[in-house]
Every structure is written in structure tokens, then in C-alpha cells.
């Protein structure tokens, strides 16, 4: 599904130790935990995998495509269509309703979002009642589930989550992790969760440590 080889990445103008990934490979449908202390480069690696950052040294293949060779524009479109991303904060656009926030991929990459899938996703994530509301009217837990909905509604092949549980209490953290696992399993989506949250370790077999 994805293959990272001989990756070396150093942020411009920063004296930190460069990020170094000799080899990491995942097949379609696998669920991975990306572990590491804060500052170890988890977010950077996710951004590289998502094509948000440009790679100068090493290779990244996604769905057998060498995305490290592509232009930023091409990576943008590829990301919009094939990758769903969940952030630590839910990042909902405050001027749009929840329903519109979830349907944003329609605008960003012209993705087709079928009403039946939107309904089904909203049902399983228990956010149906939130759909007509504004982001300011939903709770933090709901907001994070909405962000999950937005990341999976266009049925991406790869789901990346960056510290999705860090700002949640134990109950919610557990719930979100299970939800991600379940959603990924239903659609055979490859899942990578970057975290330093020890609460999640017991839930995932496959782990990559930085």
C-alpha cells in the first residue's frame, strides 16, 4: 500500500536530528500505530506520507505511485482523492455547517460524496443530530468524530491520524480509536495513527517506533 525507503528529512534551518526511515512498508488494510516522543518527527512523517511536505532524499510510494517525484499540485489532488487526514484538533471551518464541513472534499477535489454513505458514516459515528448545526454548537468529542467522518466520507485508501486522541479523556480516546479501527476495517482502509498516547498501544498489533 505504501513503501518508504531510505528517507532522510531535515526541516530547513533547524538544527534537530534529521528524520531517518530506512524501511517501512504496509499492505492494504493494515492498521499501524506510529509511536514516538513529541518532537521525534511523527507529524513530519505523516506530512511526508500525505505529500504535504516535499521529500528531497529517499522514496515514498503510495498505491504503487512514486509520489516523492511529483509536483506539489499533483500531490495535492492525489491526497484529496486517496488520503484522509485527522488532526489532533478537529479543524472544522466555523462558517460552514457540520454537514458542509463533511462534504468539503466535493469542493477541494470534486470528490463525489454519495448521500447514502454520508448518512451511514454519520450514523455509525453517532453525529447525525449534528449535521445541520454549526461547529460552535457541538461538543469536543462530537467535533473529533465529525473530523473522522470528513476524513473517511470520500472513501480514501489511506487514513492518517495525527494524535487523534491527545485532547480527549480516556472514554472518548478509547471510543475514537475503536471507531477508527472499525471504519478502516469496513472499507479495507490502511490506517496509520501517530501518537505518544500509551492508552492506544494495547489496541494495535503493528507498531512503528521513531
Amino acid at each position: 500500500m505504501f513503501l518508504i525507503k531510505d528517507l532522510v528529512y531535515q526541516h530547513v534551518g533547524q538544527a534537530q536530528k534529521p528524520l531517518n526511515i530506512p524501511h517501512w512498508e504496509a499492505t492494504q488494510g493494515e492498521q499501524w500505530l506510529l509511536l514516538g516522543k513529541s518532537g521525534s518527527g511523527k507529524t513530519t512523517l505523516l506530512h511526508l506520507l500525505a505529500g504535504i511536505l516535499s521529500l528531497k532524499q529517499g522514496t515514498i510510494e503510495l498505491l504503487n505511485q512514486p509520489i516523492h517525484q511529483w509536483s506539489a499540485y499533483r500531490r495535492d489532488v492525489f491526497r484529496g482523492k486517496n488520503i484522509g487526514i485527522i488532526f489532533q484538533k478537529s479543524h472544522l471551518i466555523p462558517t460552514l455547517t457540520i454537514s458542509e464541513n463533511i462534504r468539503l472534499p466535493q469542493f477541494t477535489v470534486g470528490a463525489k460524496i454519495e448521500a447514502s454513505i454520508l448518512k451511514e458514516v454519520a450514523e455509525t459515528l453517532q453525529i447525525e443530530h449534528c449535521l445541520p448545526k454549526m461547529p460552535s454548537q457541538v461538543s469536543q468529542g462530537e467535533a473529533q468524530r465529525i473530523a473522522v467522518a470528513r476524513a473517511i466520507v470520500h472513501q480514501p485508501a489511506l487514513l492518517l491520524a495525527d494524535e487523534p486522541t491527545a485532547s480527549l479523556d480516556d472514554d472518548n480516546a478509547h471510543q475514537v480509536a475503536l471507531l477508527l479501527q472499525k471504519q478502516a476495517k469496513i472499507r479495507q482502509t490502511t490506517l496509520v495513527i501517530a501518537t505518544h498516547d500509551n492508552r492506544l498501544k494495547s489496541l494495535f498489533d503493528q507498531q512503528y517506533s521513531l
Binding site: I52, A72, D76, K81, P105, T108
Partner: peptide
């Protein structure tokens, strides 16, 4: 800028 970064992460190009 958060909204814009989010749109970009969802695949919106710079031009968009």
C-alpha cells in the same frame, strides 16, 4: 490560515 491549511490538506491546490 487554519481553514486554508485544512482545505489544502483535503486536496485543494494553492490555486484553488
Amino acid at each position: 490560515s487554519y481553514d486554508i491549511a485544512l482545505l489544502r490538506s483535503l486536496g485543494a491546490s494553492r490555486w484553488k
